[in-house]
Design a protein around this nucleic acid. Structure first.
Lengths: 134, 134
DNA sequence: CCGTATCCTCCTCGATACTG
DNA sequence: CAGTATCGAGGAGGATACGG
């Protein structure tokens, strides 16, 4: 449309850019693993398969709702499998898939960088907060 | 308190666990870089210092508010510097610090894993959604 | 040019209660 | 045991308008 105002063109560009960013693989993966409980679940399962109740106990702060939601997301993304044993009472086991295992080194890299540099970050924050009170 | 109920003990444990997780270096760093605009800003600045308006143009989808907020966070964490030149009109330049540069490989690792495996994830999602309609 | 201030909306997440 | 259903508070983030 040649008759678009500059205003309209800017909005269009913004929408297009945001759609593009949303499709970005890095963005999708980052969104997935930055979820509060995801790394905790993945790390726990790295030590072997676990039942729902094991995970709930191990990750003490999580609510039932969030644990279930997190597990469903990870199952949907193919990072873990969910196996139901229809005994009474039922038993549900979760286990990392090979794909799920391949992402652990990435999480490990983040962990390593974090532990190596968190001190510097804290110092930077303290300095900044001192220079900028309020 | 020995007179605590089981209910109270569970709440205590949950609070303690959440406080512990909040302090975790990985958590803090993950929270920082998983922000929608952070990786885009860091990547842009990897190519060299930039003015505020350069960043705004380059990252087309961001609002002024979010761009400023993101830059302040990164400055506070010591990942970039902010230099004001009090000309008229003012000029503000942003530049990565050495610390900021060291985090780029981590972001790169995420990007690499994502691009290598996003296809598998999309297939897993499609399969899951087919098996679980609704 | 580089922001701040305000308002307003959506959406996440926890708490709680209930079920096969 | 392993969830689902519902509600409500709180925060993130965009739009808009204004300021140094």
């Amino acid at each position: 449309m040649a008759t678009m105002t500059a205003e309209q063109r800017r909005r269009q560009a913004k929408l297009a850019y945001n759609a593009y960013v949303a499709e970005c693989p890095s963005r999708q993966v980052l969104d997935a693993i930055s979820d509060k409980w995801v790394t905790l679940v993945l790390s726990a399962l790295d030590e072997g398969p676990m039942r729902y109740s094991d995970l709930a106990r191990r990750i003490a702060g999580v609510s039932q709702k969030m644990l279930t939601q997190t597990l469903r997301m990870l199952e949907r993304d193919g990072l873990l499998t969910r196996t139901i044993t229809p005994s009474v009472p039922v038993r549900v086991d979760y286990e990392l898939t090979p794909l799920g295992e391949t992402i652990l080194p990435v999480v490990g890299a983040i962990k390593q960088w974090s532990e190596a540099h968190i001190e510097q970050i804290h110092e930077a924050r303290a300095g900044y907060d001192e220079r900028n009170p309020s």
